[in-house]
Amino acid sequence: MLRNTAGIDAGGSLIKMVYQENGRMHFKKFPINEHDSAISWLKLSVPSLTVSLTGGKSSIIQKKYFPESVIIPEFQATCEGTRFLLEAENKSIGDNYLIVNIGTGTSWHVVKGDKVERILGSGIGGGTFTGLGSLLTKVRGYRQLTCLSEEGNKNNVDLMVKDIYESAESPVNGELTAANFAKGIRMNPSEADRMASLSNMIAETIVLLTSQAATIHQIKSAVIIGSATAGNKPLRHALESYLDMVGVTPVFLEKGEYCGAIGAHLSV
């Protein structure tokens, strides 16, 4: 008889679950502040679970709900989950690549064959989008802010290279950002414009750091994972566009936001 197993990634913003029931893998996520109801739902839906945990709040979940569970280091779980999905989704990118995990913040890992190393971290990520977005607008919630950013025009907020050079010949692409939010004082931009600018600033920052890491480690591909790009078309489009511009091939995984939970689940 097949066991019912689960991997749970309890992070800063979300609790993500990957559970296997009767040989089939399922995916579910909840806001982290709803972890009590999320775990109760899981226990009712899939009884007699064997669980493995990862993420910053995994020890809280372990003590309260699964004292017999094992906690897998977050970076290990994330990278193992990424390897699994690359194979499962038939993404062939060779043995050397970057993993860019855009969650509440962002982490960078370099993969070279069997060796994986975390090389960089930034406080810029999905938490920035939600937190700063709620300060720039009257909107609350990641999905609502994402919808708002789709409606906006960042050019009403950002100072572009073409704005500086006007009719003169620009030494770089005129569509690049010269200064984020620099028009905000005089343009009175809409909330949608502010969110479009914020999304673009996050993408530019992540791509800049990714490009530097790729150059240092002589890597051409970056696997983009994490919850921040799930359902956020403007952010994903900007990441794709800017990464292509700097010569780094972006690879997005269909279930990339669940890499940590998958990695934990693989250890059960």
Rank of each mutant, 00 (worst) to 15 (best):
M1F: 09
R3I: 12
N4Y: 13
N4G: 06
A6F: 01
I8G: 00
D9Q: 11
A10F: 13
G11N: 04
L14Q: 02
M17E: 02
M17H: 06
V18H: 07
Q20M: 14
N22H: 14
M25I: 15
F27Y: 13
F27S: 00
K28T: 04
K28I: 10
E34G: 01
S40G: 11
W41T: 04
S45I: 14
P47S: 00
T50M: 12
S52A: 15
L53M: 09
T54K: 04
G56Y: 03
K57G: 00
S58N: 03
S59M: 08
K64C: 06
P67Y: 08
P67W: 08
S69W: 15
E74W: 11
E74Y: 11
Q76E: 09
C79F: 06
E80Y: 15
E87C: 08
A88D: 09
I93R: 08
N96I: 09
V100H: 08
G103M: 05
G103W: 04
T104W: 01
G105F: 11
T106S: 12
W108E: 03
H109P: 05
V111C: 09
G113R: 08
D114G: 11
V116S: 11
V116I: 15
R118P: 04
I119Q: 13
I119W: 11
G123Q: 03
T128D: 00
F129P: 07
F129M: 14
T130Q: 07
G131V: 13
L132A: 15
V139G: 01
G141P: 00
G141I: 04
Y142H: 11
L145E: 01
L145G: 07
L148K: 08
G152C: 11
G152F: 07
K154H: 12
K154S: 15
V161W: 04
V161C: 04
V161E: 03
D163Y: 10
D163H: 14
D163R: 13
I164N: 02
S167T: 14
S167V: 05
N173G: 12
N173T: 11
G174C: 10
A179F: 07
A179Y: 08
K183H: 15
G184V: 14
I185R: 09
M187G: 04
A192C: 02
R194K: 10
N200D: 12
T210R: 12
Q212Y: 06
Q212V: 12
A213G: 03
A213C: 00
A214W: 06
A214Q: 02
I216Y: 13
H217M: 04
A222N: 02
V223H: 00
I224R: 02
G226M: 05
T229R: 03
A230F: 10
G231W: 07
K233H: 04
L235K: 01
R236G: 06
R236E: 12
A238G: 00
L243I: 11
D244K: 13
M245Q: 15
V246Y: 05
G247Q: 03
G256N: 02
G256Y: 03
Y258W: 03
Y258D: 00
A261W: 01
I262H: 03
L266F: 14
